[in-house]
Amino acid sequence: MQLAFPDAIYLVDAIEGGKTLVKACQPALESSYITKVIHDCKRDSEALYFQFGIKLHNVVDTQIAYSLIKEQEGQKRVPDDYISFVGLLADPRFGGISYAEKEEVRVLLRQDPNFWKYRPLSDLMVRAAADDVRFLLFIYHKMVEKLNQRSLWYLAVRGALYCRCFCTNDNNFADWPPLPPVPDTLIAEENAPEEEILSVLDVPPGKMGCIIGRRGVSILAIKQSCSAEIILGGDKGPPDKVFIIGTVRQVRKAEAMLRGRMLQL
Rank of each mutant, 00 (worst) to 15 (best):
E73K: 10
Y10Q: 09
L89M: 14
F94R: 04
K42V: 12
I38Y: 09
F5H: 01
G237E: 02
N171S: 13
L186N: 10
K42T: 07
I245W: 06
E46H: 14
I211T: 05
K19L: 02
T20N: 11
Q72C: 14
A129D: 09
G206M: 08
L29R: 08
V203C: 09
V133I: 08
A130G: 01
D61N: 09
A130N: 04
V60F: 14
V37S: 01
M262R: 04
D240C: 02
L155E: 04
Q75G: 06
C41M: 11
L186Q: 07
E145G: 00
P92V: 04
R261D: 00
L147R: 03
S67Q: 15
Y49L: 05
P204R: 07
C165M: 14
R43E: 12
K207A: 05
T247Y: 04
P92C: 00
V203T: 12
I212A: 06
A129E: 09
V86N: 09
V203A: 06
A14L: 06
G209K: 15
Q72D: 10
K55S: 01
Y10K: 12
K23Q: 14
C210A: 08
W176H: 07
V203H: 07
D91N: 15
S218K: 11
L137M: 08
V133W: 08
G74T: 12
N148M: 09
C210W: 00
Q264H: 06
R259W: 07
S31Y: 01
I212G: 09
A65K: 00
V22F: 06
V60R: 05
G159S: 07
K19P: 00
L89S: 13
S98H: 13
L11W: 10
T247R: 02
A128K: 04
P178K: 10
V251G: 01
K146Y: 00
L186P: 08
P205Y: 15
P92F: 01
Y49Q: 00
K236H: 12
L147W: 10
P180E: 12
E145Y: 03
L198T: 07
I64S: 01
V200I: 15
L3S: 01
N114W: 05
E30P: 09
L11D: 03
M208R: 11
Q264G: 05
Q75C: 14
A47N: 13
V105W: 03
P183M: 02
V59I: 14
Y118S: 14
I230N: 02
R110E: 06
